[in-house]
Amino acid sequence: MFEARLLQGSILKKALEGIRELITSGNWECSSAGISMQGMDPSHVALTVLMLQNDLFDQFRCDRNVTLGLNHATFSKILKCAANDDIITLKAEDQPDECNLLFQSANDDKTSDFIIKLTDIDQETLGIPDTEYAATVKVPSVEFQRICRDLSQFGDTIIISVKKGCVEFSGTGEIGSAKIALKESGNVDDDEKVSVEMDKDTPCSLSFASRYLNYFTKATSLSDTVTLQLCPEHPLVVSYDIGDNGSLKYYLAPKIEE
């Protein structure tokens, strides 16, 4: 028996916004540790990894590991029936062919009960190697969303460059070019600030498809800040923390010189 009650149901709604356009369906793996889902886009360019630890839920019970094969378009349609301040409970039997979703309004005067049919998804799981990243950059998530949107007007590639105390985003296309630089702020405890950490102070510059970066920014409402991790010739990691007990991470393969 699996049962997970999320007081802040909007977390699930927001997470699905950041997933549904990248992965049409996924295996949501439920264990005593929490819920995780990993999926790649069909062209093997971006990997999406969602982690919701058991502590994120006010009630969590998972007697045996359960796989919920969910169609994300359907899941999203159902979650849109929940209000932002609803409490959401997910329930499933041990070897489920359906999952039950219960929405309770904040003042408990409305309950909605949905059943979503599960599908068998034959999906490969990828092992993500531990990487020592050359640069770790934290920026306000809204700022990152805006930069990705603005630079997409210039071309299909965004170059992210990190040098000491500064991260630079640039794009070039037929209409012209653009370069947006964010300087590291003094006080990095504030969510509005920018922090730039570098290993060995070596500048690092990589090119990425703007289309995917824009997909990732659909998760903006999950967190005030977004973390970017770069390493030469490695996938970029874009992470949105979900409080202290969860995260939505994206891995994006770089564009390389032909």
């Binding site: 062209s43 093997h44 990828l126 092992g127 010189e257």
Partner: peptide, 14 residues
């Protein structure tokens, strides 16, 4: 503006 690489060249199937 560069060739798109695949994640499969970085990550291995489990």
């Amino acid at each position: 503006s560069g060739k798109q690489s695949s994640l499969m060249s970085f990550f291995k199937k489990k």
